[in-house]
Computed example of a mutant assay.
Amino acid sequence: MKVAIFASGNGTNFDAIANSQELKEAGLKIEILVCDQPNAPVISKAKDLKIPVFVNELKNYPSRKLYEQKIIEKLASYDLDYIFLAGYMKVVTSELLNRYPNKIINIHPSLLPKFSGLDAIQRAFDSSEKETGVTIHYIDEGVDTGPVIRQEKIAILPSDSVDSLEERIHQKEHEMYIKVILDLIKK
Rank of each mutant, 00 (worst) to 15 (best):
E95V: 11
V148P: 06
P109K: 10
P147W: 01
P113N: 04
E31T: 01
I136N: 12
A16C: 09
H170Y: 15
K179Q: 15
I72S: 09
L28P: 03
V55G: 06
I169E: 13
K153Q: 15
V148N: 09
K65A: 15
A18K: 04
K24D: 04
I104N: 14
M89F: 05
H108I: 04
I154L: 13
N13F: 02
L165S: 10
D36A: 04
E68D: 06
V148I: 15
S116G: 15
K50Y: 08
T135W: 10
L165G: 09
V91L: 15
T12C: 04
I83T: 07
A40C: 02
D15A: 04
H137E: 04
A124Q: 12
I139K: 01
A46K: 03
R123T: 09
T12R: 12
V42G: 05
A76S: 14
D119T: 09
K47C: 00
D183E: 14
E167V: 00
Y61Q: 09
K103T: 00
N19V: 06
S8L: 09
V92E: 05
Y67H: 15
L96W: 11
P62I: 07
V34G: 07
V92Y: 04
A18F: 11
A16R: 12
V3E: 13
I32G: 03
K50T: 02
D183T: 08
L157M: 10
E31F: 06
N102R: 11
I17R: 06
Y177H: 04
E167P: 00
K65W: 00
T132E: 05
P147M: 05
D48E: 13
R123S: 09
N56L: 02
I136Q: 05
E22W: 01
C35A: 12
F115H: 15
E31R: 08
S110M: 08
D183H: 13
I43D: 08
P38C: 06
E175H: 15
V143Q: 10
L80A: 10
L184T: 02
K47F: 03
S128K: 12
K2R: 12
K179F: 00
G133K: 14
A4M: 03
L80N: 07
L58K: 13
A18T: 05
L118Y: 03
L165C: 09
K70V: 07
K50V: 01
G9E: 05
L157A: 06
A18W: 08
K179V: 00
I105G: 12
Q69T: 06
I30H: 08
V42K: 04
P147N: 11
I121D: 11
G146Y: 03
S63K: 05
Y100T: 04
S44K: 11
F84M: 11
F125N: 09
P41R: 07
K47I: 01
A18L: 03
N98Y: 06
L49R: 12
E167S: 14
D81I: 00
L182T: 11
I83G: 04
M89S: 10
P113G: 10
L96Y: 08
R168Y: 10
Q122S: 15
E95S: 13
D79P: 02
H137N: 14
S20M: 12
V143F: 02
F115A: 05
Y100A: 14
N98W: 03
I154F: 11
Y61H: 15
S63N: 02
K172L: 14
V92C: 08
L49V: 07
Y61A: 00
F115C: 14
E175L: 01
E95C: 11
K50C: 00
Y82I: 05
D36Y: 01
